[in-house]
Amino acid sequence: MSTMVATTLQRCRRLYRRIWRRVGPRQYPVPDLSRESVGPLEAFYAYRGLPCLIQCRLADCRWFGPTGIAYGRDSLHPYVQSLRQYLDGECRSYRGSCLETYWQHWQPSTLAASLGVSSDTAHPWLRRVPPLSDFMPWSDVRQLQLLRTLAELSPQGEGAESSLVSETAVRQVGPKPDWFGERRLNQLVALHRAILQEGYRYQASQRLEYFHQHIVLDTLARGDEVRFLVANGQHRASVLSVLGYASVPALVHVSHRRGPSLVRREDCLSWPSVRQGIFTENQALEIFDRVFEGRPPPGFPRLARAGEATLAPGELEIAPCAQVMPEGSPTERH
């Protein structure tokens, strides 16, 4: 009964969105700075934190979460490598793909392990809760409240099994059912085909929600340097990486429920989870620097690359991801 109700509500939401896109009012257009040499910090101050469209290097973008995996031409992201496998004829389904290998080999049992925080020094809540998709040291108080609730409801004992988080909710960690992997790969293939045929959508309808118009990024600032977390548009960033794009127009400073869209390293002591003692200052800064620099957490497996033989579990070796991408001019617009 509950499944039927959930399915009906989902269909109603889809119908509502379709109608709204046709007859709803246009969103207020965002400033398009993608043809200018404007960075996210400059755009933030010039437009008082309003959403802006700027040009961003894919090599500076990271998969949302604590993995530190970068996009770009030389990306080892499992989405990118699996799509390359499919295009090269190495695999025709999720089975045997780099994505399957990734989810088989990266299965941290706790939030602390997924964040790369030592169990000996991690807060008890981090040791009791399973990995979460959106929780980072700079997440807002809503994520902190979710952590507290899950910790109170989780079974006692470190690493105890918990069914409070769906097995498909956190895409950065495995294991995952085959049907879910097949869906991810099918979406990548369909999107690749659409972009090849129609070109990437630089001028999308303003009736679409922001995250359907463009890739949405959160900005990580360390002094004058910036990197980005892909808050929305993981599949688009992966497909564009396969197509050889060096940079793409992306939306920055878009508010969402996960936390701030601009994260400054120097504000570490003001992050809610640091103020509440969930992370020490050193732990929070280590996670920030690791993601910023594209370094994976401790215990992270070597990522499989298209063209290589699939690794057996006994052949795992810990190695940093190849995150430094060569500079290059942006691919010409279609």
Score class of each variant (00 low, 15 high):
residue 283 Q to D: 06
residue 330 P to W: 07
residue 114 S to Y: 05
residue 18 R to G: 14
residue 186 N to Q: 15
residue 273 S to Q: 15
residue 82 S to A: 09
residue 111 L to A: 02
residue 18 R to E: 14
residue 244 G to E: 09
residue 64 F to V: 00
residue 34 S to D: 13
residue 329 S to L: 14
residue 220 L to R: 00
residue 250 A to Y: 06
residue 45 Y to V: 15
residue 49 G to S: 05
residue 22 R to P: 01
residue 89 G to R: 08
residue 16 Y to R: 13
residue 210 Y to W: 12
residue 57 R to V: 02
residue 253 H to M: 08
residue 207 R to N: 08
residue 77 H to K: 04
residue 153 L to E: 14
residue 31 P to Q: 07
residue 134 D to R: 10
residue 55 Q to M: 13
residue 11 R to I: 13
residue 278 I to Q: 02
residue 334 H to Y: 12
residue 124 P to T: 07
residue 22 R to G: 10
residue 34 S to Y: 10
residue 245 Y to A: 05
residue 101 T to N: 13
residue 252 V to W: 00
residue 270 S to G: 09
residue 164 L to P: 07
residue 266 E to A: 13
residue 16 Y to I: 10
residue 263 V to N: 03
residue 122 A to I: 00
residue 273 S to P: 00
residue 72 G to D: 06
residue 318 I to N: 12
residue 264 R to Q: 11
residue 20 W to G: 02
residue 161 E to R: 13
residue 255 S to A: 12
residue 238 S to T: 05
residue 149 T to A: 12
residue 102 Y to I: 02
residue 248 V to W: 05
residue 95 R to V: 13
residue 179 W to A: 08
residue 84 R to F: 00
residue 169 A to E: 14
residue 16 Y to A: 14
residue 51 P to S: 05
residue 163 S to Y: 09
residue 174 G to H: 05
residue 328 G to C: 10
residue 244 G to K: 07
residue 252 V to E: 01
residue 200 Y to C: 02
residue 114 S to T: 11
residue 290 R to C: 03
residue 208 L to R: 15
residue 153 L to G: 01
residue 254 V to C: 10
residue 160 A to E: 12
residue 276 Q to F: 09
residue 269 L to T: 12
residue 53 L to T: 05
residue 108 P to H: 06
residue 214 H to W: 11
residue 2 S to C: 09
residue 323 Q to W: 07
residue 225 E to T: 08
residue 99 L to M: 15
residue 282 N to C: 09
residue 25 P to G: 05
residue 214 H to P: 00
residue 270 S to M: 11
residue 50 L to C: 14
residue 327 E to V: 11
residue 158 E to R: 09
residue 29 P to F: 06
residue 225 E to F: 03
residue 150 L to K: 07
residue 49 G to F: 04
residue 39 G to T: 09
residue 72 G to Y: 02
residue 109 S to I: 12
residue 107 Q to I: 08
residue 309 A to Y: 05
residue 74 D to G: 09
residue 86 Y to E: 05
residue 166 S to I: 04
residue 313 P to L: 03
residue 184 R to P: 00
residue 326 P to T: 07
residue 242 V to N: 02
residue 43 A to R: 05
residue 63 W to R: 09
residue 296 P to I: 00
residue 44 F to S: 06
residue 303 L to P: 00
residue 283 Q to M: 06
residue 81 Q to M: 05
residue 314 G to M: 07
